[in-house]
Design a protein around this nucleic acid. Structure first.
Length: 383
DNA sequence: AAAGGGACCTGGCTGC
DNA sequence: TGCAGCCAGGTCCCTT
C-alpha cells in the first residue's frame, strides 16, 4: 500500500525523470480515474495538454506536479502575456499572492509561478510508471503483494502485451490496468510516457488550482518545491511527520485534545498525514502503545514516542524503498521487499513477536485489521 | 464541531 | 467446476 515512503519514492523518481517535460497528449482510458477533476476527461485533457511539468511535490500521500507554460515561450506568447492586464478576473490570491510582479519583470522571469497542478493520489494500488524509448520499454513490474494477504498470483510478471499498432517501439506494450497516459516531450530522462496504472481504482488524477497554504504561507507547502501553495483538495491535509516545518509540540497537543483512539488519530490525515494502516501498526508496536488507547488519557511522552516511532519506521522504509529503482520504472510499492524483512507486526497474525516471542494478534478495527503484540502492547483497561 | 461509519472499487481467495 | 460473497485499503461524505 502506498503510504508516505512509497509516495516519496515515486516523487523522487518523477523529480529526476520527468520534471521539465511538456505534456504533448493525454489519454484517459478510465473516466473514473479522473473523477475528481472538475469538468470530466475532456477538461482534464485540455488543462494538461501543452503544459510543462515544473516540479514534483508531496505532502503526506498526496503528490502534485505544478504546471507552467513551456519554458521557452514563443514571441507571440510573451507579447500576449505582456499585454494581459494585471488585475485578473479571479481576484482570488491563488498562487500569485506574491506582490504583483512588474510586467517586465514577469516577462523576464524564466520560471513563471504555477497557478495549477496535476494532482495525484495513488489510493491503494496506484502506480506512476515512467517509460522511455529504450528497446526493452516494458517496465519491470513488481507484484503488489501486501503483507498479510496471499501473494498476488504474479499477474504482473508477464503483463499482457497489447499491440497498439503505433510506430513507436515503446508503444507496443500496455499495462492491463493502465488508466491514464501522458505523452511527454523533452523529459530529462528521454521518457516518452507517464502512465497511471491502478488496479483497484481508488487512486485518481486531476488538475487543480494551487492555493495558499492557510496554515502557514511563509514556508514550503510540501516536499519538492519552495512555494507555499498546494492544490485546493490538499488544503485540509496536515503536514506529515517528515516535513521539516512540522510543529511536533503542537501536534502532540492536538492529538491529546482529541477524544478518540490513538490509531484513529494517527490515520486521520487532517491531524497528521502520511501514515496508513501498515505504518500505524508498526509505530504503535515500536512505541509499545495499544492502538485503542484513548488519546486524551495518554501522556505527552507516550504520544511523542508514537509519533517519533512512526517517523522512524517511515524513514527506514524510505531508505530501503529507494534502493531498487529502475530508471524506467517509478516503483510505487517501494519494491515491497521492505515489508518481508522489516515489518514487526503488520500481516503477521499468529507469528512470533520479534521482541518478546508472543503471538501477534489481529483485531478488527474500522472494518480493517489491527496487528499488535499482546504482551508489548497491553490492552487498555475496559477493553 | 468532532467523531464514526459506510461507500467507493477491483480481483484474488474462500466456501458452498 | 462454477459462482457468489468476502476482504483489503485511503479518503470522502454523510450522519450523529
Amino acid at each position: 500500500m502506498p503510504e508516505l515512503p512509497e509516495v516519496e519514492t515515486v516523487r523522487d523518481g518523477l523529480d529526476r525523470l520527468v520534471v521539465g517535460a511538456v505534456v504533448r497528449e493525454v489519454e484517459v482510458f478510465r473516466e473514473y480515474s479522473v473523477r475528481r477533476h472538475d469538468g470530466g476527461p475532456d477538461s482534464f485533457r485540455d488543462q494538461l495538454t501543452g503544459r510543462r511539468l515544473a516540479a514534483a511535490v508531496r505532502r503526506g500521500k498526496f503528490l502534485w506536479l505544478p504546471l507552467t507554460e513551456p519554458a521557452v515561450p514563443s514571441t507571440a506568447q510573451a507579447e500576449a502575456q505582456a499585454l494581459t492586464p494585471t488585475p485578473t478576473p479571479d481576484a482570488a490570491p491563488s498562487a500569485n499572492s506574491a506582490p504583483a510582479a512588474d510586467p517586465a519583470e514577469a516577462a523576464a522571469s524564466a520560471e513563471p509561478r504555477p497557478a495549477a497542478a496535476l494532482l495525484a493520489h495513488l489510493g491503494m494500488s496506484g502506480q506512476l510508471l515512467v517509460r522511455g524509448a529504450a528497446p526493452s520499454a516494458a517496465p519491470v513490474a513488481v507484484p503488489s503483494a501486501a503483507p498479510g494477504t496471499a501473494p498476488a498470483a504474479v499477474p504482473d510478471e508477464e503483463p499482457a502485451r497489447t499491440p497498439t499498432g503505433a510506430a513507436d517501439p515503446a508503444d507496443d506494450w500496455q499495462h492491463p490496468h493502465l488508466r491514464v497516459r501522458l505523452h511527454l516531450d523533452g523529459a530529462p530522462s528521454g521518457a516518452l510516457y507517464l502512465d497511471f496504472v491502478d488496479q483497484r481504482t481508488f487512486g485518481h488524477l486531476s488538475v487543480q488550482d494551487l492555493v495558499p497554504d492557510g496554515t502557514d504561507a511563509s514556508v514550503p507547502a510540501g516536499h519538492g518545491s519552495d512555494l507555499p501553495v498546494l492544490p485546493e483538495p490538499v488544503a485540509h491535509i496536515a503536514r506529515d511527520l517528515l516535513d521539516p516545518n512540522l510543529d511536533l509540540d503542537a501536534l502532540v497537543s492536538r492529538v491529546r485534545r482529541r477524544r478518540t483512539q490513538v490509531k484513529r488519530a494517527l490515520l486521520d490525515q487532517t491531524v497528521v498525514s502520511g501514515v496508513g494502516n501498515i505504518y500505524a501498526d508498526e509505530a504503535l508496536w515500536r512505541a509499545q502503545v495499544h492502538w485503542a488507547r484513548a488519546t486524551d488519557k495518554l501522556k505527552a511522552a507516550d504520544v511523542r514516542r508514537v509519533l517519533d516511532s512512526a517517523a522512524e519506521v517511515m524513514r527506514e522504509a524510505l531508505a530501503q524503498g529507494g534502493t531498487s529503482f529502475d530508471e524506467l520504472y517509478v516503483n510505487v510499492n517501494g519494491e515491497s521487499g521492505y515489508f518481508d524483512r522489516s515489518l514487526a507486526v503488520y500481516g503477521r497474525e499468529n507469528e512470533e513477536c520479534r521482541r518478546c516471542g508472543a503471538l501477534v494478534r489481529r483485531d478488527a478495527f474500522m472494518n480493517r485489521s489491527s496487528f499488535s503484540c499482546p504482551v508489548c502492547e497491553p490492552k487498555p483497561r475496559g477493553l
